[in-house]
Amino acid sequence: MEKHVAVGVDGSAESRAAARWAAREAVARHVPLRLVHAVDWPLDPVLPGLGKQDVDRWADRALTETAQELHERHPGLEITSRCPTGRPAAALAAEAADAALLVLGSRGLGGLVGFLIGSVALSTVVATDTPVVLVRVADDPDGPGGPGSGAPAEVVVGVDVQEAGDRMLAFAFEEAQRRGWPLRAVHGWKMPPAYAYVPFFDPDNERDIGRSVTHMVDDMLLPWRHKFPDVAVTTSVFMGSAGERLVQASQGAGLVVVGRHLRRSPLGVHLGPVTHAVLHHAAAPVAVVAHA
């Protein structure tokens, strides 16, 4: 049996949107949903005069109200609640350890597309190996234009022919198949640095490299096409910034899937420039999948 879906809940509009998104995902996967409210105690001096009982009541109310709403929307969905104590990022990461997916809410950037990534969400993303999906209020599946409205959508995944992205591709293809959506694989490439010093550049070289990279992307996707024959796959291979093109592709997407390295550098875990750009500017829910 597949693992449950977990979602961070704090009573905010962002967390309610994330909870609705997570509930639909749990129903689609036929697994339970776990609501998690992480309590960082003590809160003083941030909220002076607020006692532990007040915090507990606040947490209970957030969990109860969210569970009631989701039960009304999905009567057959099994919903449980957890209220761990400790630093929110660490608590959420711990709760995600036995989950198939962790969903978090994130504030939108007002009139701009994209996310305002708080320290808790960012710290949680790099603290867990479980896939994490960030959802804004605008991504509410039951809102206008959301995935629940019947609007056309697709799964967009950023691929890198230099990386072993099996976990990321498996996640992307499974999500596309589960939703009945097409999948678009996006890959950006750059000319080798040595070409910056070539006085007379032959445009045929660029075309040859582009064709070679396209073949590499096709070879990378071939086993996944065979494994998921019902998923319609298109590719977008170009010379330029992958992050920029993924952000553009997110405009018509229902989900954008990007990766991050599992391995750590001496300075800690880094998301990478492409994932960082997508997290801050995508116009759709973003799934971050750790890979080797």
Rank of each mutant, 00 (worst) to 15 (best):
Pro45Asn: 03
Val46Lys: 01
Val46His: 04
Leu47Met: 10
Leu47Gln: 08
Pro48Phe: 14
Leu50Gln: 08
Leu50Thr: 13
Gly51Cys: 07
Gly51Val: 05
Val55Ser: 11
Val55Ala: 15
Arg57Gly: 07
Arg57Pro: 00
Asp60Gln: 13
Ala62Tyr: 10
Thr64Tyr: 09
Ala67Asp: 10
Ala67Lys: 15
Gln68Gly: 14
Leu70Met: 07
Leu70Ile: 07
Leu70Gln: 08
Glu72Phe: 11
Glu72Ser: 15
Arg73Ile: 04
Pro75Thr: 10
Pro75Leu: 12
Pro75Phe: 11
Glu78Ala: 15
Ile79Ala: 14
Thr80Glu: 10
Arg82Asp: 13
Thr85Ser: 12
Arg87Phe: 13
Pro88Phe: 08
Ala90Asn: 06
Ala91Lys: 05
Ala91Leu: 11
Leu92Gln: 06
Ala93Glu: 03
Ala94Leu: 14
Glu95Tyr: 07
Ala96Cys: 06
Ala96Tyr: 06
Ala99Lys: 02
Ala99Arg: 01
Ala99Trp: 06
Leu101Thr: 06
Leu102Trp: 08
Val103Asp: 03
Gly105Thr: 03
Arg107Lys: 14
Arg107Leu: 10
Gly108Val: 01
Gly110Phe: 06
Leu112Thr: 10
Val113Trp: 12
Val113Leu: 09
Gly114Trp: 03
Gly114Thr: 00
Phe115Thr: 05
Phe115Pro: 00
Leu116Cys: 00
Ile117Ala: 15
Ser119Lys: 10
Ala121Met: 01
Leu122Ala: 14
Leu122Arg: 15
Ser123His: 15
Val126Trp: 06
Val126His: 09
Val126Pro: 04
Asp129Phe: 10
Thr130Lys: 11
Val132Thr: 11
